[in-house]
Amino acid sequence: MLSGTRQSVIRDLPLPLLWAITLLTMVISTKGWAHEPVFSMGPETIWQGGVGIETEFEFADEGGEELSVLHYEILYGLTKDLSLTLEVPQILDRQAEGETGDGLGDVEVRAKYQFFKKDMLNAQHKITGIFGIKVPTGDDEADPPLGTGTTEFPFGLSYGYESRTWYHFLTTLYRLRTESGNSDPGDRLFINGAVGYRPVQGEYTDPDVVFFLEMNAEFEFKDELRGTRLPNTGGNTIWLGPTTLVSPNPQWMFKTGIQFPIYENLNGHQEHSEFRASFGIEHHF
């Protein structure tokens, strides 16, 4: 149960700020690992006993509102088929309604279980189940809020084909968002597809570059406040854009990408997205 002060804050939350929370959860989407797409997850699990760390900077321009987030991720391979990830977002700058804020965002823990794998010469097919929990560690009472104030349960399936030349991924992820006081944010559904190509098939220690084209379809149901659906929330957006993964050696990877909304059907009156961009560094050992 929420405290009385917190409930009243949610009740009095202006609609633009509700949209700001939506933007926050959109940007703090789950991240890809290894040669997965940059703007979504794939089926990759790390080897048994392997540890991966990642820092990723994301920027989103939402009309007059801007958000800069630094994600810290740590990944551990419990078995070759089961890996755990802890993701901690640090909001560097959040601008909305003329106010700015920064601080810790909502922390997420998730597990990936790879239940199908077929290895071939220089290629793999994989299917992985994804389960997680996002806890409201970000301050949702701040102005602007740094967290959503709700607990979320992301779950989904991811299929991937990887070879020395071509990659393709298809991931479906559903984010079940629980009620928080009188507020019930709408659930979100992500359908992500990506195609990748490696132009030069170098040897093990050579620098490695893979180009991707990623398309992300995002469907959000309307938020509810005290049982009433809010008209200016929810909607559908399809993002498209190029991303690039560069490994100077087998232990490091730099990943960057930009996406633009090629289709937007938002309910009521909402700010339209301009673009979102990401730059990350991964290291595993």
């Binding site: 080897w47 290895d119 070879s163 093990y204 232990q251």
Partner: peptide
């Protein structure tokens, strides 16, 4: 089978290097 990228193959390097008879790897 399944060796698609150097970044993913690093795990194999780590595992082989832990084997008692290991001397070198290519």
């Amino acid at each position: 089978d399944g060796l698609a990228c150097p970044f993913c193959a690093f795990g194999l390097e780590k595992k082989i290097k832990k084997l008692p008879g290991y001397d070198s790897l290519h």
